[in-house]
């Protein structure tokens, strides 16, 4: 894993990507610091962090599109498969390298509250809590991007899909408000979700039967629940969307709440997507 990590990290820094990435974060960090802290003379740094969190929409696809897609395109996956290392080590090594690339600009940002404190009262716990949230949010989004990258061998496709996923994530909580709250509408939405999950299962395993089985099983459970207790579904989908929104969790950090549940939530999301990436890479062994 150390070998992959070092290799990956050095390829970030031999190319432009890591610098562009850091530059982007620092550019927007700087703009919002100017606007809020210097011009408007607000001493709270967490609002800067909150406002700039949208940069992830653009930079996460850039940072993660290459990671596994490029290995596939270059056929270097063959090397990884034949070396005495596991796919878990490969995925973890690459992910940790990304975390470091993300941590560098965040480390620079973390100097800002210190500098600002010379000129006013900065609430440090909130400022640093929000930076931690920012880093965790970025890590979770990177794990998603890594998974998207493992699905294709084309970087543009990986970047495009990743961007759509980021966009959905960003607006998930806002969209939740527009979802009709009736039980029937929720039921429909959940059914659609079951269909999508079945489709993903089919894509991952190439087993049409398996995909159909997943869909039928989920749909069966939903139907039974709906018939027995339809009140369960009232507003349920909107609530779920809000619960699933990574940005919603991030906002808790910004509001000055350091909740262990949010941290666990981010770590779980990272775990799930890294696990899926490993599975997706292992699947390459079956079909290449």
């Amino acid at each position: 894993m150390k070998a992959i990590f070092k290799h990956e990290l050095s390829s970030w820094f031999t190319g432009m990507t890591a610098y562009v990435f850091a530059g982007f974060i620092l550019l927007f960090g700087g703009i919002y610091t100017m606007a809020y802290n210097l011009n408007a003379m607000v001493s709270d740094f967490q609002y800067v962090v909150s406002s700039m969190s949208f940069v992830f929409l653009i930079i996460i696809p850039i940072l993660s599109m290459r990671v596994l897609a490029e290995e596939k395109r270059q056929k270097t996956t063959q090397l990884l498969y034949s070396l005495p290392i596991s796919m878990t080590q490969v995925v973890l090594g690459k992910f940790f390298a990304q975390l470091v690339v993300l941590a560098l600009p965040v480390a620079v940002l973390s100097l800002y509250p210190l500098i600002l404190s010379a000129f006013g009262n900065v609430h440090f716990p909130a400022a640093y809590g929000s930076l931690l949230g920012f880093w965790l949010l970025g890590a979770a989004l990177l794990a998603m991007g890594l998974f998207v990258s493992s699905l294709t061998e084309s970087q543009p496709v990986a970047a495009g899909v990743c961007f759509v996923v980021m966009l959905l994530n960003y607006f998930l909580a806002d969209l939740a408000d527009f979802v009709p709250g009736t039980a029937a509408a929720s039921f429909g939405a959940f059914s659609l979700l079951a269909l999508i999950l079945g489709g993903i299962f089919w894509l991952m395993t190439r087993s049409g039967f398996g995909g159909a089985a997943v869909f039928v099983a989920l749909e069966g459970i939903l139907t039974v629940l709906f018939i027995l207790k339809s009140s369960l579904f009232e507003g349920a989908f909107g609530a779920l969307m809000e619960k699933l929104s990574l940005y919603e969790q991030f906002e808790r950090f910004v509001n000055g709440v350091l909740d262990i549940r949010s941290i666990v939530y981010f770590i779980s999301v990272i775990g799930v997507f890294l696990f899926l990436s490993v599975q997706s890479m292992e699947r390459g062994r079956w079909s290449e």
Binding site: T14, G15, Q74, K75, T76, L79
Partner: peptide, 9 residues
């Protein structure tokens, strides 16, 4: 392998 697995950069 058939195609040498190299990193061009």
């Amino acid at each position: 392998p058939e195609i040498p697995p190299l990193y061009p950069d």
